[in-house]
Design a protein around this nucleic acid. Structure first.
Length: 833
RNA sequence: GCGAGAGUGGCGGAACCGGCAGACGCACUGGAUUUAGGAUCCAGCGGUUUUACCGUGGGGGUUCGAAUCCCCCCUCUCGCACCA
């Protein structure tokens, strides 16, 4: 007898070759015979090797893709590379090479790793964002955005990471630290390119409703928080002695009468004119210098001391006509609202602390509705709603009413207007780095900013760059790149040397996958219309704001440029949990990294995939266990052995082969019921709920049941057919999860067509109907006995049968039966007193 | 502080609409097979003072019946946070 043991490496290689030769996973949008389905996993950065997080992410995606194929969908399932980025530059410096070389080498290696896992990607659509064939379209979008005023250049305080030697977008600063390298971020004044994402703030917020149900609530709320809409008023405060006014944004205009001073961010544009005549200017300048030099993290720290300084100027409260001293305060943020705050110490804790420190007046203008008017403030500000006091004509009215009336009043005086403010800032996309898409702009001495004419795209990143060792971009010093004639006047000009944030690439790659090689335009309208939006997007929670917000914005912006009529890119989002080991994220420094290559070598790709899906449901973190993965390996071995040992009796029937129950023995019926029950559960868990762990448990149970009945059924009259159908069902359910071994055993059973081209069967509810059911008998809700009865037994008959039970009798003896509850087919509860 | 989520055996996890808590797997224990180890197969595996009682973070409630619904509290994770 030849070696019939399970050798994953042979089986897997064989089927990967077959799928490739047969182009099993190549699809086209011209297929109108089937409904379409687009499943996408977040594409990886080609860092060198894949890690377990990728394996988990892509295994989940692959099950979804293969499942949908078996359900008759035309499934687009592409893969590519998020290939621009800083690590390539650092590696290039270290190895004295070009970032492109490092990147393409990594892509080559990682592609092989992914292929070894047997994912159902349409590899003919593979793309790398660092390829000019990709980024040229991004440069075109930039030009179109520029025409529309959606991208603009401004000098502004920006986040500077000294380690990465570049600026960062607000979304890329976490807790004052760089998202990539954890360096403390500095504040710098630079001229940068910004995308006007704030134009879409309201739509980005509103459309979250469209995603409810399809996206996790957690992500929706994070996006909502980030956009940070608040509704209130802008109020103008005339400055005494200057023909100018300070505008504040407030949500509590009902407390306007209690505004006793003004707080400005030290960066506020009016500061120079406010302090011009102040003899103590030097001290103020020192304060400004000290505050603005502070690291972002330090200044916004919770426990940071509230500090300020008087400018010497006053403004007028438009409601009371009173003079309000103007202070600079370190806690007022230049980037939020207008950078100026009307301080209402009685009703805002920060203002109160500030007022106490600098001996400023505190005036109570709201009292709790259940307190008398001699309500006082000591060291706790009262920030709840209540009743207005000390507020002139608005007194004795509830605050919500006062809000409306003061808004009307100020608007009629033209001293203020209702306003909406967002926390979301425009997206700074300039990066002072080399390995990114060049921003297609030219600076002419005469004409100023001149966009590169679309015909001259792409602006290619030079192939011959030598990377300076200090991490700075070589571009500004590459005269061949920089020097150019102005396309408008022909005079001397210089190219922009900043490149785009790499999050720009990932904001539209899902659309390019629909026609990745199209040479003359970014998208083919028919293909985009057919495939988009992505039906199921899968990736890590770490992109809950960054990537997912940018991509949503891009879809809306490109819609308004006429590329499509799409509002949202991803209809459904699954955020998978992290892969942990010893309760911690895998990292080289902790030495708890599990190498996917090594696992594949030891157990095969199918086992690795199976374990990743079995160990926990997709959204939850997965604790890696070296011994638990052996359990998955054992299961596949048992499956392999079972089918090989039964070779003689198996035939290519099923899955869920229709059979006449009348012809089956009770044991045959039992296995058949187990088969259909497994199909029912697996279909529900996989298709509806993405709970692959319980679907796999159902498969294991089915194999266990087959094992119990196997010996007997091998010899019974219909046994072989029942066994064959059950095993076919098992392989069908496992096909999306462990495709190689499933195909191999499927072929071994004699099936002629390939399993990846088979259809997902429906279970037969009639197969689940049993003659007898086990009914649990409770007394006062406590389990006392269980009996087996015919499924169609009359309720009254069932009740009396339960009362006859010995174990039941013991518990109702000497008591009065008050009532009996019957849950048909399941349970009887006898209530006694 | 605000928002979201979670607490079930030694461990990962299950339990669909309120109806047998702990499916499935890991670890562990005993047995079979084996020169031995490994592999495989069979049996056991929440706790206890075991005819029974207790048990899903704690306390209360609704119900014939609660891991599941309601109220209060505790703990943990994540996100946001001097946001005017």
């Amino acid at each position: 007898m030849q070696d019939s043991r399970y050798h994953p490496e042979q089986v897997e290689k064989k089927w990967q070759q077959i799928w490739e030769e047969r182009k099993t996973f190549e699809v086209t949008h011209q297929d109108t015979s089937r409904p379409r389905y687009y499943v996408l996993e977040m594409f990886p950065y080609p860092s060198g090797r894949i890690h377990m997080g990728h394996v988990r992410n892509y295994s989940i995606g692959d099950v979804v893709a293969r499942m949908k194929m078996m359900q008759g969908f035309n499934v687009l399932h592409p893969m590519g590379w998020d290939a621009f980025g800083l690590p390539a530059e650092n590696a290039a410096i270290k190895n004295n090479t070009h970032p492109a070389q490092w990147t393409y080498q990594n892509i080559g290696y990682m592609r092989q790793e992914l292929k070894r896992l047997g994912y159902s990607y349409d590899w003919s659509r593979e793309l790398a964002t660092c390829h000019p064939g990709y980024y040229q379209w991004e440069q075109l979008f930039f030009l179109k955005f520029y025409e529309k005023g959606l991208v603009y250049r401004k000098k502004a305080p920006v986040n500077w990471c000294p380690t990465c030697v570049t600026v960062l977008a607000n979304e890329q600063v976490e807790d004052g630290l760089c998202w990539r390298c954890d360096s403390s971020v500095e504040n710098r004044e630079l001229s940068q390119w910004f995308l006007r994402i704030t134009d879409y703030a309201e739509e980005l917020l509103q459309d979250l409703d469209k995603l409810t149900g399809g996206w996790p609530d957690r992500v929706l709320s994070m996006q909502k928080n980030w956009i940070g809409k608040s509704t209130g008023m802008e109020i103008d405060f005339p400055v005494q002695g200057l023909d100018a006014k300070i505008t504040v944004f407030t949500t509590r205009h009902d407390t306007l009468f209690g505004a006793t001073f003004m707080s400005l961010a030290p960066e506020h544009e009016m500061v120079p004119s406010l302090i011009r005549d102040n003899p103590g200017q030097d001290r103020i300048q020192q304060f400004i210098a000290r505050t603005t030099a502070q690291e972002h993290r330090e200044r916004t720290d919770d426990d940071a001391e509230k500090e300020g300084i008087f400018t010497g100027s006053f403004c007028i409260n438009p409601a009371t006509g009173e003079k309000m001293p103007i202070y600079l305060a370190n806690f007022v943020l230049a980037e939020y609202g207008t950078g100026a705050v009307m301080a209402v110490p009685a009703h805002d804790q920060r203002d109160l602390e500030f007022a106490r420190k600098y001996h400023l007046p505190v005036r109570v203008v709201v009292r709790p509705s259940d307190q008398s008017s001699d309500f006082h403030i000591l060291d706790q500000a009262y920030s709840e709603p209540g009743v207005a006091i000390n507020s002139g004509q608005f007194d004795h009215k509830p605050t919500h009413q006062v809000q409306e009336e003061i808004a009307d009043y100020l608007e009629s005086l033209q001293a203020g207007r209702r306003a909406v403010n967002y926390r979301l800032r425009d997206w700074n996309i300039s990066r002072q780095r080399f390995w990114g898409a060049p921003i297609p702009v030219i600076y002419c001495e005469k004409c100023g900013i001149v966009p590169v004419p679309a015909d001259n795209l792409p602006v290619l990143l030079p192939q011959d760059a030598e990377m300076p060792s200090d991490g700075r971009s070589p571009l500004p010093h590459m005269e061949a790149f920089v020097q150019i004639d102005c396309p408008e006047c022909g005079g001397k000009a210089r190219r922009e040397t900043d490149t785009m944030d790499t999050f720009v690439e990932s904001s539209w790659y899902f659309a390019r996958f629909t026609t990745p090689r199209k040479p003359d335009s970014p998208f083919e309208p028919d293909a985009v219309k057919y495939w988009l939006p992505v039906d199921q997007y899968i990736g890590g929670i770490e992109h809950a704001i960054l990537h997912l917000l940018y991509a949503r914005f891009f879809v809306k912006a490109l819609r308004d440029l006429g590329y499509w009529d799409l509002d949202e890119p991803f209809s459904n989002l699954l955020t998978q949990g992290m892969v942990l080991r010893d309760g911690a994220k895998m990292s080289k420094s902790k030495g708890n990294v599990v190498d996917p290559d090594e696992m594949i070598q030891r157990f095969g790709a199918d086992t690795v995939r199976l374990y990743c899906l079995f160990a926990s449901p997709p959204e939850k973190d997965l604790e890696w266990s070296d011994s638990a993965i052996e359990g998955s390996y054992r299961f596949l071995n048992r499956l392999w052995r079972t089918i090989h040992q039964l070779s003689g009796v198996l035939s290519p029937v099923g899955p869920c082969m229709p059979m006449d129950p009348g012809e089956l023995s009770s044991e045959e019926k039992k296995l058949r019921a187990a088969e259909h029950e497994a199909m029912r559960r697996a279909t529900r868990d996989m298709l509806d709920r993405f709970q692959f762990n319980t679907a796999i448990a159902a498969c294991m149970e089915l194999l266990n049941t087959i094992g119990q009945h196997r010996e007997h059924l091998e010899k019974s009259s219909n046994g072989p057919r029942v066994l064959s159908s059950a095993l076919s069902t098992l392989l069908t359910v496992l096909a999306p999860i462990t495709p190689h071994i499933s195909e191999e055993l499927w072929a071994h059973m004699g099936h002629s067509h390939s399993l990846s081209e088979s259809r997902w069967p429906d279970y037969d509810p009639r197969a689940l109907v049993r003659d007898e059911v086990t009914v649990v008998v409770q007394v006062n809700g406590k389990l006392r006995s269980s009996i087996s009865v015919p499924v169609d037994m009359d309720q009254e008959e069932l009740k009396s049968l339960c009362l006859e039970e010995d174990k039941v009798k013991k518990h109702i003896e000497g008591k009065k039966v008050v009532k009996i509850i019957v849950v048909p087919g399941k349970l009887v509860n006898i209530v006694v007193r």
